[in-house]
Design a protein around this nucleic acid. Structure first.
Lengths: 154, 154
DNA sequence: TATTGTTATACTCTATAACTATA
DNA sequence: TATAGTTATAGAGTATAACAATA
């Protein structure tokens, strides 16, 4: 067995795991994306940004959104522009730093987010209908390990 | 508690699981995408298409690629065009159906794929370094449940 | 001099729908 | 009439880098 073949044989489990993780996520994501667009005329990144804000009532800075959504600043600016134009979020000045903004959900944005989240949750429940409660907990915990290790490594 | 609040309270675990699944996948995907582009000047969907072909030495039809990659036919055509222009894949005629093609890796494509896969595997191993062997097996099995249930539901 | 956020550019992927050729 | 694949269009997301304003 040559070096390359050895390298492949040594850790095929991780690669298989990655491919399966990617498949599952894309499968569900494609479905949700299609439904969310048809039902609410919006996109997953826009929903994601609103979800971040919903958990941060005091608002988040552009840089913080960028970090949490794991997207570059330019993308956050673009998505925020769209949502602001539709009156769903607003840029508030930050006391003590005139460079920065705090992006907040408007009342309308909060209302629309709640409506979307309710429906989305039903879809997500469907997506995981093959799992028992303990399966869900186990999967959540394992992915937590992946996430935490990754964040520490960076 | 009104209906909406009940709906949200009844299955918050699924939504949390979905968000974590999405986060983990995007985290790893972003990293791999960046590395694969800088190192090999290619993209994940292109790699994915080549990976599908690597597992199917006799080649795959456009429609089969579309199904396995879970993207529309137009996307497959576009990616195949690029790869064919670079001599990495080729469209072969299918005996008995002059409408169809069988897309195959060329010798050069197979060679380049092996080189990429070897390096990518190391990156993927890094990504899952927080998991033990049994964790990996468990995660793989749980995602398998998700996947199979989803495919049956469709 | 560093940081916050925006702008400009270019590219990839994606879906949709209309289209051609063949079955 | 249905299927395989292509084309055309339009849109979103992304990265990069240059830029403005402020720290």
């Amino acid at each position: 067995m040559d070096l390359e073949a050895r390298a492949r044989a040594e850790h095929p489990e991780e690669l298989r795991l990655w491919l399966r993780l990617l498949t599952c996520t894309q499968m569900i994501e494609r479905d949700l994306r299609s439904r969310i667009r048809q039902t609410f005329d919006t996109t997953l990144p826009r929903f994601d940004l609103m979800a971040q804000l919903e958990r941060a009532p005091q608002g988040l800075r552009m840089s913080e959104l960028s970090k949490r959504m794991m997207v570059t600043g330019g993308s956050v600016t673009g998505i925020t522009d769209q949502l602001e134009a539709e009156g769903l979020v607003e840029r508030m000045p930050v006391a003590g730093d005139r460079r920065a903004f705090s992006v907040c959900l408007t009342a309308q944005g909060r209302e629309q987010f709640q409506a979307m989240a309710t429906v989305l949750e039903d879809w997500v429940v469907e997506a995981f209908a093959g799992l028992s409660s303990s399966d869900i907990a186990a999967l959540h915990a394992l992915l937590g390990k992946v996430k935490n290790h990754y964040l520490e490594a960076v």
